[in-house]
């Protein structure tokens, strides 16, 4: 049975309603590339998603179509997903800052009390 549609373009295709020709095999839709977008000069590139593509060039074309449809963008990066090394969420404790590294934080340095005490002492001396 051929498909008859309200859409003349579909009817003209003369499509069989039933046949099923060969299934897609793994990678028929290509590997993935991760996409990074810079919305404005001076800002960081930010990861926005991925595209399936056979090459960097086409990944760039698809990334532009897919991720820069609205708003502004000044620069795009694409990189093969398989080239990215990632940490595991289950290991995210490696990022925890321990109390012993407090010296790396700006709020570990409080000088105002010392300055005030110094000023008070000087004032007393000169009084």
């Amino acid at each position: 049975m051929k498909i008859v549609s309200l859409d003349p373009r579909v009817t003209r295709e003369n499509i069989d309603a039933e046949t099923l020709e060969g299934e897609l095999q793994p990678l028929d839709h290509f590997e993935t590339y991760e996409v990074f977008e810079q919305r404005k000069r001076g800002t960081h590139h930010v990861h926005v998603g991925n595209v399936h593509a056979p090459s960097h060039e086409l990944a760039m074309v698809f990334a532009k179509e897919q991720y820069t449809r609205r708003g502004q963008c000044v620069n795009l990066w694409v990189v093969r997903t398989s080239d990215i090394f990632v940490t595991e969420y289950m290991d995210s404790d490696i990022f925890e800052t321990t109390a012993t590294k407090k010296y790396r934080e700006p709020d570990a340095y409080k000088v105002i009390d010392r300055i005030n005490a110094f000023k008070a002492r000087e004032a007393a001396k000169n009084a």
Binding site: F30, E31, T32, E34, N50, P54, T81, S82, I84, V86
Partner: peptide, 14 residues
Amino acid sequence: AILRKDAKYVTPLA
């Protein structure tokens, strides 16, 4: 026609 022969599938990251 444009398949890359040594393409390697990995699950998308995010």
